[in-house]
């Protein structure tokens, strides 16, 4: 499968690989996997408490080259965003920016989940309400629909 140059670049030289201290109150961790652990994404954000701006973002991914590249480019995007802005991440934006083929959309769904989980982890540690669930349910319904579409 031929990938866009950008995927190869982020795969060859992944930015923001690493580990933040998951016990720190400033750090939110999202560790997500698909069944059978054939794809695992971990995204960590370090947030400045004053305005809830993401100062640093790190990742580790077990998965195909596209998943690695997509997680890396997402961590770059996260830096400098407030957690509210970051929560608006749509996995299709990652698909577009890397020109991923349809077969790789599922990787980006996992990444979106990891980002939102990391934000919620930070919110939880700092006594904030989790991201609104209603929205998530809608998204999940949408995801299920998309997964079905891919199966068909």
């Amino acid at each position: 499968m031929a990938y866009a140059e950008r995927v190869l670049d982020y795969y060859d030289n992944p930015r923001n690989v690493g580990t933040l201290d998951k016990t720190s109150a400033r750090v939110g961790t999202g560790l997500i996997h698909v069944p059978e652990y054939i794809e695992v994404v971990r995204i960590q954000i370090e947030v400045s408490p004053a305005r809830h701006v993401i100062m640093d973002a790190r990742f580790k991914t077990f998965g195909c080259g596209a998943a690695i590249a997509a997680t890396s480019i997402t961590t770059e995007w996260l830096k400098g965003k407030t957690i509210e802005e970051a929560a608006r991440l749509d996995h299709m934006d990652i698909v577009e920016v890397l020109s991923l083929p349809p077969a790789k959309i599922h990787c980006t769904i996992l990444i979106e989940d990891a980002v939102k989980t990391a934000i919620n982890d930070y919110r939880h540690k700092n006594g904030m309400e989790p991201l609104q669930e209603e929205e998530e349910e809608e998204e999940e319904a949408e995801r299920d629909y998309e997964l079905e579409e891919e199966h068909n």
Partner: peptide, 25 residues
């Protein structure tokens, strides 16, 4: 790739892969 793999990191830290606390949304 193992340097990029979260599973490898957990393995190296001696985590039991079956009892890892996975995040929930």
């Amino acid at each position: 790739l193992r340097e990029i793999s979260p599973l490898w990191e957990m393995f190296k830290e001696g985590a039991d892969m079956n009892t890892i606390e996975w995040s929930r949304l």
